[in-house]
Write a protein that binds this DNA or RNA. Structure first.
Lengths: 265, 265
DNA sequence: CGGTGTTTTGAATTCCTTCAAATTATGTGG
DNA sequence: CCACATAATTTGAAGGAATTCAAAACACCG
């Protein structure tokens, strides 16, 4: 498993292996929420994710002219799909967390104003169109898992529209934190009652369709209500129930991406 | 082809046949924008759409407990996916026009607050999960067409988020009219410089995330600018270029659902 | 013709933005 | 480890945008 041509001794190799192990297992862990993977599935998956690329924060992930059937899997770090307006306005249409997939289909026909941008420095695996089709061809389970993952994605998409259209500023921010916390918990990236929150208030404003000034004030509101703390890129939720309640957050739309419930359809 | 148990003579039969012919061709026409259908494809398609149901305006289309793998194809009329909040707020997350497909996947796991509702009286064909899989299994072309259709749907979804998040009220309404006009034009449902517009101002407010009072005022703004007229459920666009310009409307995100361009990737 | 549903209007209020400017983190090279 | 530059957060005051809450006018249908 040789990923880089440059390197520097044992320490480097070990950190690389750890990194790699931690990263591929993120996607595995996510897919395991939808289906039961066999050992073969896991091998094929790991094999498909060989081509790892590192992208610095604020750089574009997918370039125009790329194989539009390729799929990028975020292994580490956060990215975002952005709709950029001519006049500088931008809207983040979805956040990509570790384990999330992103096809550059966008580039088949037009959408010149759409980018996928790294919000932190990130590691992504690039799976070519044919490799992805192979993967789905080899394993019906994996195929089902990816289908399910795209269903969840569009479900999140719909809830985003509901937030932007009908939630107040406070509800909106609270809801976003609930969603991100839940999605991160699903892949084991939360700590005791908190999670990393690398988004700046500027990023948050582009996710929620508001100004960063107003995000700031809304944040103060949530802090004043003792629902959460946020500093040094880390979110601590003091009262998850209260936050979810305020946000009208019902994790059902995240499908399997939340703790199992009593009913099992 | 017996659809109703009630009826009334030859005139009724003729109108029924015309209706049906016009309806299935709407979906065909739409798919033809993506792929080239064979005669066999068209036959299979027509066969899959046998089970036609009529739903009155304001009624729910898909009921909980339905086969979640089934697909509903809107043949005639307009419908909407709605996210309904407990307190009465609602957000329409997407509009379903003739030829649009809609899976009730939503109902596999939760999303109890999500409905698909008829905005006008509509005719839909219900294609069972297995029938749909058969259809895709029989024809790689049809499979590709449906894949493409779902890509366009999520592209529209992203542009919706951009509208809700970053467009002003006037831009938002103008953009919606541009999109709907373009989508209707793609399936031949526009007349000279206009199209049907069955949405009430209440509906529009739930699509655009605003109050109907404000929609009303925004509408007056667009009329004052001599960009359009809207009355008796019919939209006339006087200045399509001006409207698109105001809305920052770039039809690229609708992919093939707009007049062909010079470049052909 | 009356009843229901939709559109239009006004005035007051609330929410959010704008535009700086000040303050506080964050990170880098000396 | 400090000084500095840069990035991010916080604050204030004023203006603009959208909502709220009625109430009135209009359209549509049986």
């Amino acid at each position: 498993m040789l990923l880089f041509r440059t390197g520097g001794g044992i320490a480097w190799l070990i950190s690389l292996l750890q990194l790699d192990a931690g990263m591929t297992s993120t996607l595995e862990r996510k897919l395991e929420l939808f289906v039961r993977l066999s050992d073969a599935d896991r091998l094929w998956l790991a094999d498909a994710l060989r081509d790892v690329r590192h992208v610095p924060a604020r750089a574009d992930l997918v370039a125009e002219g790329d194989d539009p059937r390729a799929v990028y899997v975020v292994l580490d770090g956060w990215a975002a799909r952005c709709r950029n307006f001519r006049d500088g306005r931008r809207q983040i249409t979805s956040l990509l967390l570790p384990g999330d997939c992103c096809d550059p289909h966008v580039f088949i026909l037009g959408e010149r104003d759409h980018t996928v941008t790294a919000l932190t420095q990130i590691a992504v695996a690039r799976v070519s169109g044919s490799a992805f089709l192979d993967l789905e061809g080899r394993s019906a389970t994996l195929k089902r898992a990816f289908k399910f993952e795209s269903l969840v994605e569009s479900s999140i998409q719909r809830e985003t529209a509901a937030s932007l259209g009908r939630r107040t500023a406070t509800e909106r921010l609270a809801h976003l934190f609930c969603e991100l916390h839940t999605r991160l918990a699903a892949i084991g990236l939360t700590d005791e009652s908190g999670c990393p929150m690398p988004l700046t208030q500027d990023d948050l404003s582009d996710v929620l369709g508001q100004t960063s000034v107003h995000i700031n004030r809304t944040l103060q509101d949530l802090r004043r209500r003792k629902l959460l703390s946020l500093n040094r890129r880390h979110l601590i939720i003091h009262d998850l129930v209260g936050l979810a309640d305020l946000a009208h957050f019902d994790p059902a739309y995240l499908h399997a991406l939340h703790p199992p419930r009593e009913e099992n359809p």
